[in-house]
Design a protein around this nucleic acid. Sequence first.
DNA 1: ATAAATTCCTATCTTTTCGATAGGAATTAT
DNA 2: ATAATTCCTATCGAAAAGATAGGAATTTAT
Lengths: 132, 132
Amino acid sequence: MIVSTRGRYALRMMAELAECGSSSLRALAAAQNVPYKYAESIMRSLVKAGFVESTRGKKGGYRLTRAPESYTLAEILGETETSLAATDCTGRKERDCPRAATCPSLPVWRALDETVCDFLSRYTLSDLMPKA
Amino acid sequence: MIVSTRGRYALRMMAELAECGSSSLRALAAAQNVPYKYAESIMRSLVKAGFVESTRGKKGGYRLTRAPESYTLAEILGETETSLAATDCTGRKERDCPRAATCPSLPVWRALDETVCDFLSRYTLSDLMPKA
DNA sequence: ATAAATTCCTATCTTTTCGATAGGAATTAT
DNA sequence: ATAATTCCTATCGAAAAGATAGGAATTTAT
Protein backbone atom coordinates (compact mmCIF):
# COMPACT_ATOMS: atom_id res chain seq x y z
CA MET A 1 0.00 0.00 0.00
CA ILE A 2 1.41 3.35 -1.01
CA VAL A 3 -1.37 5.58 0.24
CA SER A 4 -3.14 4.52 3.42
CA THR A 5 -6.51 5.50 4.77
CA ARG A 6 -4.94 8.17 6.92
CA GLY A 7 -3.34 9.86 3.93
CA ARG A 8 -6.50 9.71 1.89
CA TYR A 9 -8.48 11.20 4.76
CA ALA A 10 -5.95 14.03 4.95
CA LEU A 11 -6.27 14.73 1.23
CA ARG A 12 -10.04 14.65 1.34
CA MET A 13 -10.29 17.01 4.26
CA MET A 14 -7.85 19.41 2.67
CA ALA A 15 -9.78 19.25 -0.59
CA GLU A 16 -12.91 20.01 1.39
CA LEU A 17 -11.22 23.08 2.88
CA ALA A 18 -10.14 24.13 -0.59
CA GLU A 19 -13.76 23.87 -1.61
CA CYS A 20 -15.50 25.55 1.29
CA GLY A 21 -12.87 27.99 2.51
CA SER A 22 -12.99 27.16 6.19
CA SER A 23 -14.67 24.65 8.41
CA SER A 24 -14.80 23.25 11.91
CA LEU A 25 -13.51 19.79 12.60
CA ARG A 26 -17.00 18.55 13.24
CA ALA A 27 -18.22 19.75 9.87
CA LEU A 28 -15.11 18.56 8.04
CA ALA A 29 -15.27 15.08 9.48
CA ALA A 30 -18.97 14.82 8.73
CA ALA A 31 -18.61 16.12 5.18
CA GLN A 32 -15.85 13.68 4.32
CA ASN A 33 -17.06 10.78 6.42
CA VAL A 34 -13.97 10.60 8.55
CA PRO A 35 -14.26 9.37 12.16
CA TYR A 36 -14.26 12.49 14.32
CA LYS A 37 -11.41 11.65 16.64
CA TYR A 38 -9.28 10.23 13.88
CA ALA A 39 -9.89 13.36 11.86
CA GLU A 40 -8.75 15.39 14.82
CA SER A 41 -5.36 13.73 15.01
CA ILE A 42 -4.88 14.09 11.28
CA MET A 43 -5.78 17.78 11.27
CA ARG A 44 -3.40 18.39 14.12
CA SER A 45 -0.53 17.01 12.08
CA LEU A 46 -1.53 19.13 9.10
CA VAL A 47 -1.51 22.22 11.29
CA LYS A 48 1.87 21.23 12.67
CA ALA A 49 3.19 20.85 9.12
CA GLY A 50 1.95 24.35 8.29
CA PHE A 51 -0.45 23.17 5.60
CA VAL A 52 -3.47 24.34 7.52
CA GLU A 53 -4.23 27.13 9.99
CA SER A 54 -6.53 26.79 12.94
CA THR A 55 -8.38 29.11 15.27
CA ARG A 56 -9.59 27.82 18.58
CA GLY A 57 -12.69 28.49 20.61
CA LYS A 58 -16.25 28.97 19.57
CA LYS A 59 -16.49 29.81 15.88
CA GLY A 60 -13.05 28.31 15.45
CA GLY A 61 -12.01 25.99 12.66
CA TYR A 62 -9.46 25.24 9.96
CA ARG A 63 -8.43 26.76 6.63
CA LEU A 64 -5.68 26.27 4.08
CA THR A 65 -2.63 28.48 4.27
CA ARG A 66 -1.97 28.45 0.53
CA ALA A 67 -3.65 28.09 -2.82
CA PRO A 68 -4.94 24.56 -3.50
CA GLU A 69 -2.88 24.14 -6.66
CA SER A 70 0.31 24.80 -4.71
CA TYR A 71 0.04 21.66 -2.61
CA THR A 72 1.42 18.58 -4.33
CA LEU A 73 0.17 15.17 -3.25
CA ALA A 74 3.77 14.19 -2.57
CA GLU A 75 4.09 17.03 -0.12
CA ILE A 76 0.93 16.23 1.82
CA LEU A 77 1.41 12.49 1.84
CA GLY A 78 5.02 12.97 2.87
CA GLU A 79 3.68 14.36 6.15
CA THR A 80 0.75 12.08 6.74
CA GLU A 81 2.07 8.72 5.68
CA THR A 82 4.46 6.83 7.89
CA SER A 83 6.66 6.36 4.86
CA LEU A 84 6.38 6.79 1.13
CA ALA A 85 9.39 4.58 0.48
CA ALA A 86 8.87 1.71 -1.95
CA THR A 87 10.68 -0.70 0.35
CA ASP A 88 12.29 -0.77 3.76
CA CYS A 89 15.56 -0.73 1.86
CA THR A 90 15.01 2.87 0.84
CA GLY A 91 13.31 4.09 4.02
CA ARG A 92 14.95 5.66 7.04
CA LYS A 93 14.84 2.35 8.81
CA GLU A 94 17.44 0.28 7.02
CA ARG A 95 20.32 2.66 7.17
CA ASP A 96 22.82 -0.07 7.75
CA CYS A 97 21.84 -2.96 5.52
CA PRO A 98 24.98 -5.01 5.03
CA ARG A 99 23.92 -5.88 1.50
CA ALA A 100 23.58 -2.25 0.43
CA ALA A 101 26.96 -1.93 -1.20
CA THR A 102 26.51 -4.81 -3.59
CA CYS A 103 22.74 -5.41 -3.66
CA PRO A 104 21.58 -5.58 -7.29
CA SER A 105 18.01 -4.70 -6.27
CA LEU A 106 18.72 -1.48 -4.45
CA PRO A 107 19.07 0.69 -7.57
CA VAL A 108 15.73 -0.64 -8.76
CA TRP A 109 14.02 0.34 -5.50
CA ARG A 110 15.58 3.78 -5.64
CA ALA A 111 14.31 4.25 -9.17
CA LEU A 112 10.87 3.09 -8.09
CA ASP A 113 10.86 5.58 -5.24
CA GLU A 114 11.67 8.33 -7.67
CA THR A 115 9.00 7.23 -10.10
CA VAL A 116 6.34 7.29 -7.41
CA CYS A 117 7.53 10.59 -6.02
CA ASP A 118 7.54 12.16 -9.48
CA PHE A 119 4.04 10.93 -10.04
CA LEU A 120 2.76 12.32 -6.77
CA SER A 121 4.47 15.62 -7.47
CA ARG A 122 2.57 16.06 -10.71
CA TYR A 123 -0.80 16.22 -8.95
CA THR A 124 -2.05 18.90 -6.59
CA LEU A 125 -4.95 19.40 -4.21
CA SER A 126 -6.94 21.05 -6.93
CA ASP A 127 -6.87 17.80 -8.87
CA LEU A 128 -8.79 16.26 -5.99
CA MET A 129 -11.57 18.81 -5.93
CA PRO A 130 -14.94 17.91 -7.41
CA LYS A 131 -14.83 19.24 -10.91
CA ALA A 132 -16.92 22.31 -11.66
CA MET B 1 5.33 0.06 1.30
CA ILE B 2 5.10 -1.30 -2.21
CA VAL B 3 7.47 -4.22 -1.90
CA SER B 4 7.59 -6.04 1.41
CA THR B 5 10.22 -8.29 2.89
CA ARG B 6 8.40 -11.35 1.63
CA GLY B 7 8.50 -10.10 -1.95
CA ARG B 8 12.15 -9.18 -1.76
CA TYR B 9 12.99 -12.58 -0.32
CA ALA B 10 11.16 -14.18 -3.22
CA LEU B 11 13.08 -12.14 -5.75
CA ARG B 12 16.39 -12.86 -4.10
CA MET B 13 15.83 -16.57 -3.95
CA MET B 14 14.73 -16.66 -7.57
CA ALA B 15 17.76 -14.62 -8.57
CA GLU B 16 19.87 -17.11 -6.67
CA LEU B 17 18.31 -19.95 -8.65
CA ALA B 18 18.94 -18.04 -11.84
CA GLU B 19 22.55 -17.83 -10.79
CA CYS B 20 23.21 -21.35 -9.56
CA GLY B 21 20.80 -23.39 -11.63
CA SER B 22 19.25 -25.41 -8.85
CA SER B 23 19.41 -25.56 -5.12
CA SER B 24 17.84 -27.06 -2.02
CA LEU B 25 15.78 -24.92 0.28
CA ARG B 26 18.43 -25.16 2.94
CA ALA B 27 21.11 -23.84 0.63
CA LEU B 28 18.86 -21.17 -0.87
CA ALA B 29 17.82 -19.81 2.49
CA ALA B 30 21.37 -19.79 3.74
CA ALA B 31 22.74 -18.13 0.61
CA GLN B 32 20.21 -15.33 0.69
CA ASN B 33 19.92 -15.03 4.45
CA VAL B 34 16.23 -15.83 4.58
CA PRO B 35 14.80 -17.58 7.66
CA TYR B 36 14.44 -21.24 6.73
CA LYS B 37 10.78 -21.75 7.51
CA TYR B 38 9.77 -18.44 6.02
CA ALA B 39 11.72 -19.31 2.88
CA GLU B 40 9.83 -22.57 2.73
CA SER B 41 6.42 -20.92 2.62
CA ILE B 42 7.61 -18.47 0.00
CA MET B 43 9.06 -21.17 -2.22
CA ARG B 44 5.86 -23.14 -1.96
CA SER B 45 3.87 -20.23 -3.35
CA LEU B 46 6.38 -19.79 -6.18
CA VAL B 47 5.99 -23.45 -7.09
CA LYS B 48 2.24 -23.12 -6.96
CA ALA B 49 2.44 -20.12 -9.29
CA GLY B 50 4.50 -22.17 -11.71
CA PHE B 51 7.56 -19.93 -11.50
CA VAL B 52 9.68 -22.64 -9.99
CA GLU B 53 9.83 -26.42 -10.17
CA SER B 54 10.64 -28.66 -7.27
CA THR B 55 11.74 -32.24 -6.80
CA ARG B 56 11.21 -33.92 -3.48
CA GLY B 57 13.24 -36.40 -1.50
CA LYS B 58 16.94 -36.65 -1.01
CA LYS B 59 18.84 -34.69 -3.64
CA GLY B 60 15.67 -32.69 -4.21
CA GLY B 61 15.50 -28.94 -4.66
CA TYR B 62 14.21 -26.06 -6.73
CA ARG B 63 14.92 -24.61 -10.17
CA LEU B 64 13.41 -21.99 -12.43
CA THR B 65 10.98 -23.06 -15.13
CA ARG B 66 11.92 -20.29 -17.56
CA ALA B 67 14.75 -18.02 -18.58
CA PRO B 68 15.53 -15.37 -15.97
CA GLU B 69 14.92 -12.49 -18.35
CA SER B 70 11.39 -13.71 -18.97
CA TYR B 71 10.20 -13.06 -15.42
CA THR B 72 9.12 -9.50 -14.83
CA LEU B 73 9.20 -8.12 -11.31
CA ALA B 74 5.52 -7.26 -11.68
CA GLU B 75 4.75 -10.89 -12.36
CA ILE B 76 6.64 -12.26 -9.40
CA LEU B 77 5.54 -9.61 -6.94
CA GLY B 78 1.98 -10.00 -8.12
CA GLU B 79 2.09 -13.49 -6.65
CA THR B 80 4.08 -12.90 -3.52
CA GLU B 81 2.73 -9.58 -2.30
CA THR B 82 -0.65 -9.42 -0.64
CA SER B 83 -1.48 -6.60 -3.00
CA LEU B 84 0.37 -4.32 -5.37
CA ALA B 85 -2.48 -1.80 -5.39
CA ALA B 86 -1.54 1.77 -4.55
CA THR B 87 -4.54 2.12 -2.25
CA ASP B 88 -7.39 0.05 -0.85
CA CYS B 89 -9.52 1.96 -3.32
CA THR B 90 -7.97 0.10 -6.23
CA GLY B 91 -7.51 -3.27 -4.55
CA ARG B 92 -9.92 -6.19 -4.55
CA LYS B 93 -11.14 -5.15 -1.14
CA GLU B 94 -13.12 -1.99 -1.81
CA ARG B 95 -15.31 -3.24 -4.56
CA ASP B 96 -18.29 -1.34 -3.29
CA CYS B 97 -17.02 2.05 -2.15
CA PRO B 98 -20.01 4.37 -2.29
CA ARG B 99 -17.79 7.25 -3.33
CA ALA B 100 -16.39 5.45 -6.35
CA ALA B 101 -18.73 6.96 -8.92
CA THR B 102 -17.86 10.56 -8.10
CA CYS B 103 -14.58 10.35 -6.21
CA PRO B 104 -12.07 12.78 -7.73
CA SER B 105 -9.15 10.83 -6.28
CA LEU B 106 -9.94 7.47 -7.76
CA PRO B 107 -8.60 8.22 -11.26
CA VAL B 108 -5.37 9.37 -9.67
CA TRP B 109 -4.95 6.11 -7.76
CA ARG B 110 -5.68 4.13 -10.89
CA ALA B 111 -3.04 6.07 -12.77
CA LEU B 112 -0.60 5.48 -9.94
CA ASP B 113 -1.30 1.76 -10.03
CA GLU B 114 -0.55 1.74 -13.70
CA THR B 115 2.63 3.72 -13.29
CA VAL B 116 3.94 1.31 -10.68
CA CYS B 117 2.89 -1.71 -12.67
CA ASP B 118 4.58 -0.35 -15.80
CA PHE B 119 7.72 0.27 -13.86
CA LEU B 120 7.81 -3.22 -12.41
CA SER B 121 7.14 -4.69 -15.84
CA ARG B 122 10.26 -3.08 -17.26
CA TYR B 123 12.59 -5.06 -15.00
CA THR B 124 13.21 -8.77 -14.99
CA LEU B 125 14.91 -11.29 -12.78
CA SER B 126 18.10 -10.90 -14.70
CA ASP B 127 18.26 -7.28 -13.57
CA LEU B 128 18.54 -8.59 -10.04
CA MET B 129 21.46 -10.91 -10.66
CA PRO B 130 24.90 -9.85 -9.54
CA LYS B 131 26.49 -8.33 -12.58
CA ALA B 132 29.17 -10.34 -14.32
C1' DA C 1 -19.50 35.64 34.73
C1' DT C 2 -21.00 31.62 32.62
C1' DA C 3 -22.04 28.41 29.11
C1' DA C 4 -21.22 26.48 24.72
C1' DA C 5 -18.36 25.31 20.99
C1' DT C 6 -14.33 24.64 19.59
C1' DT C 7 -9.04 23.12 19.06
C1' DC C 8 -5.17 20.93 21.53
C1' DC C 9 -2.89 17.16 23.99
C1' DT C 10 -1.72 12.50 25.84
C1' DA C 11 -2.81 8.08 26.24
C1' DT C 12 -4.88 3.87 24.99
C1' DC C 13 -7.47 0.34 22.58
C1' DT C 14 -8.55 -2.89 18.68
C1' DT C 15 -7.85 -5.00 14.36
C1' DT C 16 -5.13 -6.29 10.70
C1' DT C 17 -0.94 -7.33 8.44
C1' DC C 18 3.62 -8.98 8.35
C1' DG C 19 7.35 -11.73 9.57
C1' DA C 20 8.45 -15.90 11.41
C1' DT C 21 8.09 -20.58 13.63
C1' DA C 22 6.37 -25.49 14.97
C1' DG C 23 5.52 -30.14 14.03
C1' DG C 24 4.86 -33.60 11.29
C1' DA C 25 3.44 -36.12 6.70
C1' DA C 26 5.01 -37.48 2.12
C1' DT C 27 8.71 -38.44 -1.04
C1' DT C 28 13.07 -40.10 -2.87
C1' DA C 29 18.21 -41.28 -3.31
C1' DT C 30 21.47 -44.11 -1.18
C1' DA D 1 16.03 -48.58 6.67
C1' DT D 2 17.82 -43.99 6.89
C1' DA D 3 18.72 -39.47 5.79
C1' DA D 4 17.60 -35.50 3.29
C1' DT D 5 14.47 -33.31 1.31
C1' DT D 6 9.72 -30.85 -0.10
C1' DC D 7 4.84 -30.33 1.28
C1' DC D 8 1.08 -29.03 4.44
C1' DT D 9 -1.62 -26.86 8.28
C1' DA D 10 -1.66 -24.26 12.02
C1' DT D 11 -0.15 -20.82 14.94
C1' DC D 12 2.58 -17.24 17.25
C1' DG D 13 4.46 -12.53 18.13
C1' DA D 14 5.48 -7.93 16.88
C1' DA D 15 4.44 -3.93 14.49
C1' DA D 16 1.49 -0.86 12.07
C1' DA D 17 -2.93 1.02 11.04
C1' DG D 18 -7.29 2.63 12.30
C1' DA D 19 -9.88 4.46 15.75
C1' DT D 20 -11.37 6.13 20.47
C1' DA D 21 -11.35 8.32 25.40
C1' DG D 22 -11.05 11.98 28.48
C1' DG D 23 -9.99 16.18 29.61
C1' DA D 24 -7.28 20.85 29.33
C1' DA D 25 -7.09 25.29 26.98
C1' DT D 26 -9.21 28.83 24.26
C1' DT D 27 -12.68 31.84 22.41
C1' DT D 28 -17.34 33.63 21.31
C1' DA D 29 -21.93 34.65 22.65
C1' DT D 30 -25.25 35.50 26.06
